[in-house]
Design a protein around this nucleic acid. Structure first.
Lengths: 181, 181
DNA sequence: GTCTATAATTTGATAGAC
DNA sequence: GTCTATCAAATTATAGAC
């Protein structure tokens, strides 16, 4: 099945937002990316908040699909799989997690977008917490919250520093700290 | 000594950037904030990268001044003092850390701005690492990197989720994890 | 240092033809 | 669904008077 124009726009938008930011991404840029005019982009996404909401929703759905592929029986393997999702999302000078961008811009963004960003973080935290509880590690959700925050923050620090190893360092330290939290 | 116009502009700019983002902050907005015209803002900061660089430099200097006030003899008190700096920087629906914003926008920002953002993160990491080493906790800088990343990421997650307790949770978990890293 | 005036570009969004 | 055409507003930045 070939891509619909709506999906093509979302793919182009995700790429731009994850590198330049949401506000910096314009309908005209997206129109050029997919080979139509900006008025036609508005046909698919009437307003920018509409686009933002669809963008984060799709991102969270895809992320959830990847999470569902990770086996939960081996704690270490599962944690590695989880971190790999973040690691793959972070390409130096090219892209960070969509929700790190949306989260940083959150104060100025419409509610419907922020709700979806919040849902993404909750999804991640809930998955991690379930994994830890299953293996009798960590009592509440503190460790899960810490890991999610550290991975998102690690991307931002590493991206600004133009040094990918900073992210790797944080990711490894986050895993090593589990059990004592 | 009364504030210079240059400082007034930086104060207004910091407020706007920390809530709405750097790209969203315009010279006209700042001009209105301080009661002059946008052309006059350009007199003080010829280009936007000039403004961004001055902004992050000033932020890091002020942060360093606060760090220098924290006593290092009591590990727990020092960690609490460190986290308080972040805690105070984070006001729900109003502001997050300037460098969390700049870091999230980093890919699209000019080099001179990113260098200053990187310096801010290095300053934080170095201070924390020195504290931990002094008290014989943590070998390398892994724990320090983790804490900085977790605090920055915690702000972003909490801001997008409109839930300050998420930040508090991450901050506490980050401290509790020290020693095992 | 601040002003007026303006240039050149970009933005989100709409109306209406096809 | 996509187009042309257009709008009203906002953006960074500069020239030159005061």
């Amino acid at each position: 099945m070939p891509l619909t124009m709506k999906e093509k726009i979302l793919i182009a938008a995700e790429k731009r937002v994850r590198s330049a930011g949401f506000t910096e991404t314009s309908f005209r840029d997206l129109a050029n990316d997919v080979g139509i005019k900006s008025a036609s982009v508005h046909y698919h996404f009437p307003t920018k908040p509409d686009l933002g909401e669809a963008l984060v929703t799709r991102y969270a759905e895809q992320f959830k699909a990847e999470l569902d592929k990770i086996g939960l029986d081996d704690l270490h393997a599962a944690l590695d799989g989880f971190i790999s999702l973040y690691s793959n999302a972070f390409v130096l000078n090219e892209s960070i997690c969509l929700c790190a961008v949306m989260g940083a811009e959150a104060i100025g963004l419409p509610e419907n977008v922020n709700q979806r960003t919040k849902a993404f973080f909750e999804l991640n935290k809930a998955w991690l917490e379930a994994l830890l509880v299953k293996h009798g590690v960590g009592d509440g959700g503190d460790a899960a919250s810490l890991i999610v925050a550290a991975l998102e923050g690690g991307m931002i620090v590493a991206s600004a520093s133009n040094d990918r190893s900073l992210f790797e360092q944080v990711a490894k330290a986050a895993i090593r700290g589990i059990g004592s939290i």
